[in-house]
Simulated scan of single mutants.
Amino acid sequence: MKRKWTYSLVTIFLFSVFGFYFLITKKGNNQFFKCNAEIHFEISKNKSLIEANTSLLLASNKVAILDVKGIITKQGMDFNVERKVYFNYSRESEGGYYYFEILKEEDYALENSASDELFNEVMFGNKKSFYMSITPVGSGGFELSEMLFPVAICYTTRT
């Protein structure tokens, strides 16, 4: 009789552990990272400037979205920018970097006057892929390095 109770308790314990593991794994798959930044970036070689509010979202399905709303100025002319850029991303095993590859861009503003070429030149230096590190700096802030600009600080309300 004692053996039946012991086997029953061990079985219940194992099912509880597996259930707990499943819930943690399932919850972890629904997590995401979203970080917001105001950017001001100048490119002296082609006399371009971008001032924009940006939002970077890394979803658990290995798709990232960069939302950009602002103004690009080139040679004294202003161009409205409201775009979403979609990426595939993966975490590199060494160095804490992420690898981003552009999938597509979505021009969602009625009055978006920046051409695709100008946007890609100013935002990405005409690159289709790049590496970026995301380093916490405290109080919901993160440093983004080697992405759109040498270093940017973004903030998030969810850490």
Rank of each mutant, 00 (worst) to 15 (best):
Ala37His: 14
Ala37Arg: 08
Glu38Lys: 10
Ile39Cys: 04
Ile39Leu: 10
His40Ala: 12
Phe41Tyr: 15
Glu42Cys: 15
Glu42Asp: 15
Ile43Ala: 11
Ser44His: 15
Ser44Thr: 14
Lys45Gly: 08
Lys47His: 08
Leu49Trp: 02
Leu49Met: 03
Ile50Trp: 08
Ile50Arg: 01
Ile50His: 03
Glu51Gly: 04
Glu51Met: 09
Ala52Tyr: 02
Ala52Val: 07
Asn53Gln: 06
Thr54Leu: 06
Ser55His: 06
Ser55Val: 00
Ser55Trp: 03
Leu56Lys: 01
Leu56Met: 09
Leu57Met: 02
Ala59Pro: 15
Ser60Gln: 09
Asn61Asp: 03
Asn61Tyr: 08
Asn61Gly: 01
Lys62Met: 12
Val63Thr: 12
Val63Ser: 15
Ala64Thr: 05
Ala64Met: 02
Ala64His: 10
Ile65Val: 13
Ile65Asp: 04
Leu66Gly: 10
Asp67Cys: 10
Val68His: 02
Lys69Arg: 12
Lys69Asp: 11
Lys69Ala: 13
Ile71Cys: 06
Ile71Tyr: 14
Lys74Thr: 04
Lys74Ser: 01
Lys74Pro: 04
Gln75Pro: 07
Gln75Phe: 12
Gln75Arg: 05
Gly76Arg: 01
Gly76Met: 03
Met77Ser: 15
Asp78Asn: 12
Phe79Cys: 07
Phe79Asn: 06
Phe79Pro: 01
Asn80Ser: 08
Val81Thr: 02
Glu82Gly: 10
Arg83Ala: 06
Val85Arg: 05
Val85Cys: 08
Val85Thr: 07
Phe87Gln: 08
Phe87Val: 05
Phe87Pro: 01
Phe87Leu: 06
Asn88Phe: 15
Tyr89Glu: 00
Ser90Tyr: 03
Ser90Ala: 06
Arg91Ala: 13
Arg91Tyr: 06
